[in-house]
Computed example of a mutant assay.
Amino acid sequence: MLKYLRLLLLPFNVIYALVVFIRNKFYDWGIFQSTSFDMPVICVGNLAVGGSGKTPTTEYLVRLLGEYKVAILSRGYGRKTRGFILANETATAETIGDEPLQYYRKFKNVTVAVCEDRVKGIRELKDGHDVILLDDAYQHRKVKAGFNVLLFEFAKIRKFQMLMPAGNLREPFSVVKRAQAVLITKSPAEINEGVRTEIANKLQLEPQQDLTFSSIGYQQLKHIYTGEEVVFKAEQEVFLLTGIANPEPLRQYLESMPVNIHAFEYPDHHRFTEKEIEALAKAFQKHPAKEKIIVTTEKDGQRLLDDKLRDLLLNLPVYYLPIANEINAADKCRFDQKILDYVASAKRFDKIH
């Protein structure tokens, strides 16, 4: 049904495409100003709306750049606040957003901040840091990042895609030229040369643009409140709670194991209500199985830290399943070195162009 409704929006794609084209040309021609900064700024972004793996990619870069003082700057999607905010011990998903909260809780040696105006945010952070990572900022052209990592999902890149509003693309494929590295996420562990060439040709990549593939690495289940680690058990009843853009890879992973899945799925960044969590808890408690568990994603888990929701789940076995970006073995050294070389060689300069 949704597919047919989107077809009705096709005439508006022409208007949207024209607006995007003019906006980008105005930045390319210098009519709209882009600000560069006197430090390495790495942007992690995508063209399609949601679900491409920006969060695990940002976390990968944090680990790669461990010897530097790193700051992550996000817009803070879904927060109820505005302006520049530094994450601290009082931060919640409502004050800074679920993804920034996840970064803050996971990386104690990294500064996490949110600001819808990325230029202002960078100016607040730049003096005390060596590198700034911009989360989901490929379309935020007021900042001219020194290095852009552009993400595409493997399952979608080989299919026909359309611009919004009839499709999910924010910009056409032609803007790939702004990226220094293209990362195809959620890929198979092994990629043959035919597939690699097919995707490179579709994106019309230049020789200097790095094409890298990565797969999802599922980690150990962790209790959302205590951090206790457990493993799945055979024939276990799994009550799966998600509010992410694309839960399909997670479902496929769980379906590969001898467990029974009861899915409670909501839209991306969904703010869980007490009524919804009560329904989940009731279904869990009503099920007669002895071996049963509630599983969610790490990002969704940040929203379950709300005091009212925590009270509803406190005595239940609620675990999140962390994921990591695992760069294809054939690409890892090249991808890592390109990032490290950029950070090491980035010159100090201030200019507006």
Rank of each mutant, 00 (worst) to 15 (best):
Q236N: 04
L205Q: 04
F232E: 06
M162L: 15
I199C: 00
A155P: 01
T185V: 06
R178T: 12
G167S: 09
R158H: 08
Y225F: 12
Q208H: 12
I191Q: 02
L211D: 00
K159Y: 02
A179P: 15
R158F: 02
S214A: 13
N201G: 08
Q180R: 11
K233N: 15
N168I: 05
Q208I: 00
K159R: 12
T212H: 10
A179C: 13
Q209P: 13
Q219R: 15
F232P: 06
S187E: 10
Y225R: 14
G243N: 08
T226P: 13
E171L: 05
E190K: 11
I157M: 00
F160N: 10
A189K: 07
L221Q: 11
Q236W: 03
P247A: 12
L241E: 06
M257I: 13
V176K: 02
V259G: 01
R158A: 10
R251S: 10
Q219S: 13
P188L: 03
T226L: 15
Q236M: 07
L183M: 11
E248V: 15
I216R: 02
S214T: 12
R158V: 03
R170W: 05
Q219D: 15
K233E: 14
A234C: 13
L250V: 01
N168H: 06
I184Y: 00
H223W: 13
E198I: 05
F239Q: 02
D210T: 11
S215W: 14
V175C: 15
A189P: 04
T226A: 13
T197E: 06
N201M: 12
A200Y: 00
V259C: 02
V175D: 12
A200M: 03
Q236H: 04
A155I: 06
P249T: 01
L250D: 05
P249S: 02
G167H: 05
D210P: 06
I184V: 09
D210F: 06
Q219G: 11
L221S: 09
K156Y: 09
V195F: 04
Q204N: 08
K156V: 09
E193A: 15
R178N: 10
N192P: 00
V175L: 14
R251D: 08
E248C: 08
P165T: 01
N246G: 07
Q252P: 09
T212M: 09
M164H: 05
A166I: 03
P258Y: 11
R178Q: 12
I191N: 04
R196N: 01
L211F: 03
E206Q: 07
I157R: 00
E206F: 06
E171F: 02
L254D: 07
P258R: 13
A179E: 07
L211T: 05
A155M: 10
G194L: 08
G217Y: 12
V230T: 15
F232D: 06
T197G: 04
L169F: 03
I157N: 04
L169E: 03
